[in-house]
Amino acid sequence: MKSHRTTQTMKPATAAKKLGVYLPATPAEFQEGVVSRAELDELQANPPEWLRELRRNGPHPRPVVAAKLGVSIAGLARGGVTEPLTTEQIEALKNDSPEWLRKERATQAEARKEAARLKKRDAERAEQGDRRS
């Protein structure tokens, strides 16, 4: 019996998220269609000019803005940043370095440090458990 392979597709919002771009800034044909896994792979491997331009200059979705600023998405909200930002706006924020951004970067650094400590602790516990077996 032959298995029928169906083409896996996704909504444009899902594809935009995977590509790291802000959906409303993409071309209309991207927003209105569906994207197959093969098309997504092709977009990632050989991005067209519109995708390269969006990645370079934005507007960027919140996860990308947060990553570029070195803060969490919640930190962005606490800082009053709720809209997508362009690369230029992100650079201006970095240069201005407002108090909320310095505070959120410090919070994020502490969270990373704690996560690393817990990972090391868990690895040591797992190693000790292996020795006892």
Results as ranks from 00 to 15, higher is better:
Met1Ile: 13
Met1Phe: 11
Lys2Ala: 05
Lys2Pro: 07
Ser3Ile: 07
His4Val: 12
Arg5Val: 12
Thr6Leu: 13
Thr6Ser: 11
Thr7Asp: 07
Lys11Thr: 08
Ala13Met: 08
Thr14Leu: 12
Thr14Val: 14
Lys18Trp: 06
Leu19Ala: 12
Val21Ile: 15
Leu23Gln: 04
Ala28Pro: 03
Ala28Ile: 12
Glu29Trp: 10
Ser36Met: 04
Arg37Asp: 08
Ala38Thr: 15
Glu39Ser: 10
Glu42Pro: 01
Glu42Ile: 05
Leu43Cys: 15
Leu43Thr: 13
Ala45Ile: 09
Ala45Ser: 15
Ala45Asn: 14
Asn46Ile: 07
Pro47Lys: 12
Trp50His: 13
Leu51Asp: 09
Leu51Ser: 10
Glu53Leu: 04
Glu53Ala: 09
Arg56Gly: 00
Asn57Ile: 05
Asn57Arg: 12
Asn57His: 10
Val64Ile: 15
Val65Ser: 05
Ala66Leu: 06
Ser72Glu: 03
Ala74Asp: 06
Gly75Trp: 01
Leu76Ala: 07
Ala77Leu: 00
Gly79Tyr: 01
Gly79Val: 02
Gly80His: 07
Glu83Arg: 14
Glu83Asn: 11
Leu85Ile: 06
Leu85Cys: 11
Glu88Arg: 11
Glu88Phe: 04
Gln89Pro: 04
Gln89Gly: 03
Lys94Phe: 03
Leu101Ile: 13
Arg102Val: 10
Glu104Cys: 08
Arg105Ser: 01
Ala106Gly: 08
Ala106Phe: 11
Glu110Ile: 02
Ala111Tyr: 02
Lys113Ser: 13
Glu114Lys: 12
Ala115Asn: 11
Ala116Cys: 03
Lys119Tyr: 04
Lys119Cys: 10
Lys120His: 03
Lys120Asn: 04
Ala123Gln: 07
Glu124Ile: 05
Glu124Arg: 11
Arg125Trp: 12
Gly129Pro: 01
Asp130Tyr: 00
Asp130His: 00
Asp130Lys: 09
Arg132Phe: 03
Ser133Asp: 08
Ser133Gly: 13
